[in-house]
Write a protein that binds this DNA or RNA. Structure first.
Length: 463
DNA sequence: TCTGGGGTCCTAGGACCC
DNA sequence: TCTGGGGTCCTAGGACCC
């Protein structure tokens, strides 16, 4: 904890929803929900208009629809969020070279490294107001909530106190007065499980926590967590603002609207995910030794299996083969709702594949999952390279599942016919080995409230 | 038809080495 | 032959965060 209030935390208000409202004037002043729009989607961000109806982050989209049926449900445009986020981070970096982004919409700024004459409360307050104005300027009117305090913990708590569009400075020396009446869940790291353990021990507020001895706390929640909680409960926090963190793992996962039971389908999906992981590893100049798969069963029990190579890889075929091998040891007969592949144990160097695949612990199974480049797209079709598996294929207006065990390039054709009842959508595939079915979701880039195609209509029509 | 996706960190047990 | 630590690496699961 510092002597001066020189740690700033900035949080963009309802960020994803705010970007959508900025870019689509028709959404301003209306409830907007950004998140997964499929059958098993959850809410990432709800605009303040939607929050009035009880819509919250992490709530299932199904429930959000029930609470606020007239909201616009959007699946998100991450390139727009990233671009806006980068503009904000650039503003913060003008203020201080020490900026630590926590996510697209949040960052810490170390004001000790700014050119402020001092860090007295009036000085940092005026400075933060300037910063908020700059953020609004470069983002086309987005608002941010800011907290300033003597540590990361206090700054973060402060930014939460006056949302949205607020600014709170916690004067040095008043930290415990602020924290003591608050519920233990204000402390980062205290989630539902820890809160429940503490509750059973009669600990509800930070003041309660403050009076618990370190030994008791370690007994309750474990060594590392206990020490951390003990410090934060006394408002002691010396964590520095660190601008860059090393990546520890890279992973891709997906939850499917319908539980998977077909093992070859699962193998195909893992293969595709492995390809995405490999691509991202290479882009980042990374490779890793440990390949992990994640499998969530129909009843939500989550399993992981991992294997470690003698040397790092960034090769799609190797990651895919290991992932498929790990799946083989699992009983998935009850159905699988989520599959994922990750690589950890990262090295920032890429080594030539000196040993070929001979050293792989799981060198059985097919290795050919090379994927050809897709051809140029005709206007009414989407051409997809195909590995065994399942995929959502979409154009601007509709979407459908396509799955199969064939390989190669498949063309999916979309047609719109005008009828007295309105436009009718259809789609078909040119490979008899592939099957198709409509999904419950509209095309990912479309708002559900603006879609013109119902799943039923898509299902009833085919070429 | 409750419950995303991409991460981080911690714990605990077993293998193995000295 | 029995007793014993400590340290490191690996695996699996869980809590948490945004």
């Amino acid at each position: 904890m510092r002597a001066a209030a020189s740690v700033l935390h900035l949080d963009l208000d309802a960020f994803f929803a705010a970007v959508e409202q900025r870019d689509k004037p028709s959404l301003r002043g209306k409830p907007v929900v950004v998140g997964g729009v499929g059958g098993r989607g959850v809410v990432a961000t709800a605009s303040y208009e939607a929050r009035k109806y009880g819509v919250r982050s992490a709530m299932s989209t199904r429930e959000a629809r029930a609470r606020c049926p007239h909201a616009a449900f959007l699946s998100g445009r991450f390139h727009a969020y990233r671009a806006t986020s980068e503009a904000v981070m650039a503003v913060l970096r003008e203020a201080s070279p020490l900026v630590e982004p926590l996510s697209l919409d949040e960052a810490f700024v170390d004001l000790e490294r700014s050119d402020l004459p001092d860090h007295e409360v009036p000085t940092v307050t005026a400075y933060a107001q300037e910063l908020r104005a700059r953020v609004s300027e470069v983002t086309g009117g987005l608002t941010a909530s800011v907290g300033i305090g003597t540590s990361k913990f206090i700054a973060k708590v402060a930014s939460d106190l006056d949302k949205p569009d607020g600014l709170v400075v916690v004067p040095p020396g008043t930290e415990l007065d602020l924290l003591r009446p608050m519920h233990v869940t204000v402390i980062p790291g205290v989630g539902p499980a820890t809160a429940e353990r503490l509750r059973r021990a009669g600990i509800h507020t930070v003041a309660d926590l403050e009076s618990v001895s370190l030994e008791e706390l370690v007994r309750l929640v474990g060594r590392a967590h206990g020490h951390g909680l003990h410090e934060l409960a006394h408002a002691r926090d010396d964590r520095p603002v660190v601008p860059e963190r090393e990546t520890k793992s890279v992973s891709v996962e997906g939850t499917y609207d319908i539980d998977l039971t077909d093992r070859s389908l699962m193998a195909g999906l893992l293969t595709r995910q492995a390809g995405e992981v490999a691509t991202r590893l290479r882009k980042a100049g990374l490779s890793g030794r440990t390949v992990t798969i994640k499998v969530r069963l129909h009843d939500f029990t989550t399993l992981s299996r991992s294997t470690t190579l003698p040397s790092p890889t960034d090769t799609a075929t190797t990651i895919a083969r290991l992932a498929r091998g790990l799946l083989e040891g699992l009983d998935t007969s009850g159905g699988v709702r989520l599959l994922g592949v990750g690589v950890s144990g990262l090295a920032d160097w890429v080594q030539e594949d000196l040993f070929g695949d001979a050293d792989d612990p799981a060198s059985d199974g097919p290795a050919s999952d090379a994927v050809p480049e897709p051809a140029a797209l005709p206007p009414t079709a989407r051409q997809r390279t195909w590995a065994p598996g399942m995929d959502v294929v979409h154009d601007e207006l509709g979407a459908g599942w396509v799955w199969g065990s064939g390989r190669g390039v498949v063309t999916v054709r979309f047609e719109t016919r005008e009828t007295p009842a309105g436009p009718v959508r259809s789609f078909g595939v040119d490979d008899p080995q592939l099957h198709r079915a409509p999904t419950e979701e509209p095309a990912p880039q479309e708002s559900a409230t603006e879609g013109t195609t119902t799943p039923e209509r898509a299902a009833s029509e085919r070429t």
